[in-house]
């Protein structure tokens, strides 16, 4: 399985993402610059965190118009796994691949620390190796992670079981219903504010994020590799 880490001007978690996939997960991975016009070579798309285009106007608002995003939309439509972390999540929201929007953290502060997440849905290609209701520890680092959507959208997210991760215990940013990560209806586009790529080795303070990447590979192998 071959992953693309999309790099925008201002991405700053691209190296962490690359490291997680290559060294910890042991899969093939390549950096892909934002002006690339073809993602056919890749089986999975990773949108890393950072401050694409300086967060000008709104987080993710400019990045969504880059060339590569047209290809990300195509990949999503083709059913390939697309993971957006932090700024990557914000870009997926702006691009309309996921519903809702981000507001500034309730505290107005940039928050960078470990948080506990609860796995609300383990029937997705991103969470299948977690237990349901498993509590995991993953770091967050954001100033705008206060997820919002209207009531109708929220009802739909719940009805379709699209809320994959919630903050466990205390909610760091004020997000609606403690939402930390959501998936699209089709089940192949996940956006989350916490950084699983920063939790892939005990040396980094924890390895709870690794299972997320392992889930993606597991699903891909089951679908593509004979005798998996």
């Amino acid at each position: 399985m071959r992953f693309a880490v999309i790099v925008f001007p201002g991405s700053n978690c691209d190296v962490d993402m690359y490291h997680a996939v290559k060294d910890e997960l042991g899969a093939e991975v390549e950096y892909v610059w934002h002006d690339r016009k073809n993602l056919d070579d890749f089986d999975g798309i990773l949108l890393p965190g950072g401050f694409s285009y300086g967060d000008y106007l709104r987080s993710g608002a400019i990045a969504r118009f880059s060339n590569v995003m047209k290809e990300v939309v195509k990949a999503a439509e083709a059913g390939k796994p697309v993971l957006g972390v932090c700024n990557g999540f914000q870009i997926l929201l702006e691009a309309g691949l996921l519903p809702g929007a981000m507001r500034r953290n309730e505290s107005l502060k940039f928050i960078c620390r470990q948080v506990e997440l609860k796995v609300e849905n383990n029937q997705t290609m991103f969470s299948s190796t977690y237990e349901i209701d498993e509590v995991i520890t993953i770091p967050i680092a954001h100033g705008e992670g206060n997820y919002y959507c209207d009531e109708e959208t929220l009802a739909k997210l719940k009805a379709n079981n699209q809320i994959v991760f919630t903050y466990n215990g205390s909610n760091p940013n004020g997000s609606l219903e403690d939402i930390a990560g959501i998936i699209n209806e089709k089940g192949n586009v996940l956006g989350m504010m916490p950084h699983p790529e920063r939790a892939v080795d005990e040396l980094l303070g924890g390895a709870d994020g690794l299972k997320l990447f392992q889930s993606i590979v597991k699903q891909w192998r089951e679908a593509h590799v004979v005798n998996a």
Partner: peptide, 8 residues
């Protein structure tokens, strides 16, 4: 399309 995010 760009200047406002009409969701919020």
């Amino acid at each position: 399309r760009l200047l406002a995010n009409v969701v919020i």
